[in-house]
């Protein structure tokens, strides 16, 4: 698929970063399969045109950072090396807070070896990079990846509604019936719809009241 802003190299990098934010696992699609990079690419030539600069400067800096530190480019690295970089620039997967709110259960702790190894490597390096722009870049990619994974497919991401399938969201529905709203209803039986599907429906409907009478008996 063609790109509207990123170069091929930039797209490969963004795609690789996004895949670490939401990695694939067996049948569960990751950011790459969801087409997140195409969501981001279109965003920065449209609504988020103001973020072009962060992407351009940030990706240039990331290229330098990876060359100096790993003598390779981000998308060529092993996933654990990529994770190390993401951890360095976005922060750990789980932020430990002293004032964590009361909660019924805590997540699995991080693998401390991986964290230590990353810190050692980064501390040893003599690389001088603009960490501020890199941090901003990774913060932006994180948010954009989540958006691109769960957006309506019309935006270029969430291809074949893989993001919605993962979490069990039926997408754009005109409404739900009383039967469907009963406690414990298995919503995976509802056919996922997108804005394109609704637009197709729309051409067959003549007035507003039809949504109510057609969908919610």
């Amino acid at each position: 698929m063609a790109l509207t802003y990123f170069t091929d190299f930039q797209a490969k990098t963004v795609e690789a970063v996004a895949e670490r934010i939401i990695p694939a696992n067996g049948d569960d699609a990751g950011a790459t399969e969801a087409g997140v990079v195409y969501y981001i690419d279109r965003s920065v030539t449209g609504f988020s045109v103001n973020l072009q600069r962060i992407y351009r400067l940030g990706l240039r800096e990331l290229e330098r950072y990876c060359s100096d530190l790993f003598h390779a480019q981000f998308h060529e690295l092993e996933t654990d090396q990529q994770d190390e970089i993401v951890r360095d620039l976005l922060g750990p997967e789980v932020i430990e807070t002293s004032a964590s709110p009361a909660s019924g259960q805590l997540p699995e702790p991080l693998d401390q070896d991986i964290v230590d190894d990353g810190h050692r490597r980064l501390a040893d390096s003599s690389v001088r990079v603009d960490r501020e722009i890199l941090r901003r870049l990774f913060a932006v990619i994180r948010e954009h990846t989540v958006e691109g994974y769960f957006c309506d497919p019309v935006y270029g991401g969430n291809r074949d509604t893989v993001g919605w399938k993962l979490v069990g969201f039926p997408g754009a529905q005109w409404g739900y019936t009383a039967e469907q709203m009963k406690p414990g209803f298995d919503a995976s039986t509802i056919v996922i719809k997108t804005l394109s599907d609704l637009r197709r429906d729309l051409s067959k409907m003549t007035d507003n009241k039809q949504y109510y009478s057609n969908e919610v008996k």
Partner: peptide, 22 residues
């Protein structure tokens, strides 16, 4: 919807990676 929940996760939930996805 999913995006709103992704932004409303508990502070101690993973923000990225396999943990976020799961």
């Amino acid at each position: 919807q999913p995006l709103e929940i992704a932004q409303a996760m508990p502070e101690n939930a993973p923000r990225w990676g396999a943990g976020f996805r799961d």
